[in-house]
């Protein structure tokens, strides 16, 4: 209880501030309408009512976003082009495929790096430097180039997602596979364990906490990659497309609903990875 109360308070404060901001930002339109109809400007209580449910508000109120979110997920056929479940699934499938590719590649390269000194010295500085680069900027190019080669839909977005999750996983895994200390490595050496045995019985298990930490970073980055990857093709499908079409047509409620859907998806994906982490570490006796 002592943990939940502060969080709820903060969330309540945010919602209240949001309503105040909505009244303030949407008031201009109400005054404008009143001036055009040549009626006197509405008083404060009337103004609040008029700012709550505009069709294209500058800032939609929380309940408008909530209603739109429920309407576009539960309120219509999943196959409908207006359904956020449909668009969300398009984005999630690209995210997961890309995450899978990026994670696998990252882990494999990390294994290569810890076993080969030349590879370590050549690749690692670049892998670390690449984290400071806005990789997302190449998204439009990947989409268009693959499109001109006849590859469309899921794969180009997945490649961007893979790129974004690849580097955090690589760096985290290299750190994790190196985490056993000299004492433990020496012990395995006294058992005359082979390199492969050392890897499977010591390095891999002890890298798990590092792996899961970077998986959480990686899956959040993958989702961002998939969403941004949906922008250059024009508003076809996916949460990014909903954001873009909303901004084309001034549908602010739609933008906010897509934004919250993306936030929910991100939270769910990270939570799933967190859950797997908890279960795995517990089974391995590493729960903290």
């Amino acid at each position: 209880m002592s943990r939940i109360l502060p969080i709820v308070t903060v969330l309540l404060v945010i919602v209240c501030l949001w309503y105040v901001a909505a009244v303030k930002l949407n008031a201009a339109w109400v005054y404008d309408q009143a001036a055009r109809a040549e009626t006197p400007a509405p008083g404060f209580s009337e103004l609040v009512g008029l700012t709550m449910n505009q069709e294209r508000p500058v800032l939609p109120t929380p309940h408008q976003v909530g209603v739109e979110l429920v309407k576009s997920t539960l309120g219509m056929q999943v196959s409908s082009k207006k359904s956020l479940v449909y668009h969300g699934w398009v984005t999630i499938s690209a995210t997961l495929l890309g995450f899978l590719i990026g994670t696998t590649a990252g882990i494999l390269l990390a294994v290569g790096i810890i076993h080969n000194k030349a590879m370590d010295l050549s690749v690692m500085p670049w892998a670390i430097a690449s984290q400071t680069i806005p990789i997302l900027a190449i998204a439009p190019m990947i989409i268009v180039v693959l499109n001109s080669m006849g590859i469309q839909g899921l794969i180009p977005k997945a490649i961007i997602s893979a790129f974004l999750s690849f580097f955090p996983v690589l760096v985290g895994m290299v750190k994790g596979l190196r985490s056993p200390d000299q004492m433990q490595l020496d012990l395995l050496a006294t058992y005359s364990a082979s390199k492969a045995q050392t890897f499977w019985k010591l390095r891999l298990p002890s890298s798990m906490p590092y792996l899961f930490t970077s998986l959480k970073v990686g899956i959040a980055a993958s989702l961002v990659g998939a969403i941004v990857g949906e922008l250059p093709t024009g508003a076809v499908a996916g949460l990014g497309a909903r954001l873009l079409s909303g901004s084309y047509y001034g549908q602010t409620v739609q933008i906010w609903a897509a934004l919250f859907a993306a936030a929910l998806v991100a939270a769910a994906l990270v939570a799933i990875v967190g859950l797997i982490e908890k279960r795995t570490l517990k089974r391995m006796g590493m729960a903290r």
Binding site: V224, I227, V228, L243, S247, I255, A262, A266, A267
Partner: peptide, 12 residues
């Protein structure tokens, strides 16, 4: 952890 870049259309 959220995809905050999504607020870009709103800010624009």
């Amino acid at each position: 952890a959220l995809p905050i870049v999504g607020i870009a259309p709103i800010m624009v």
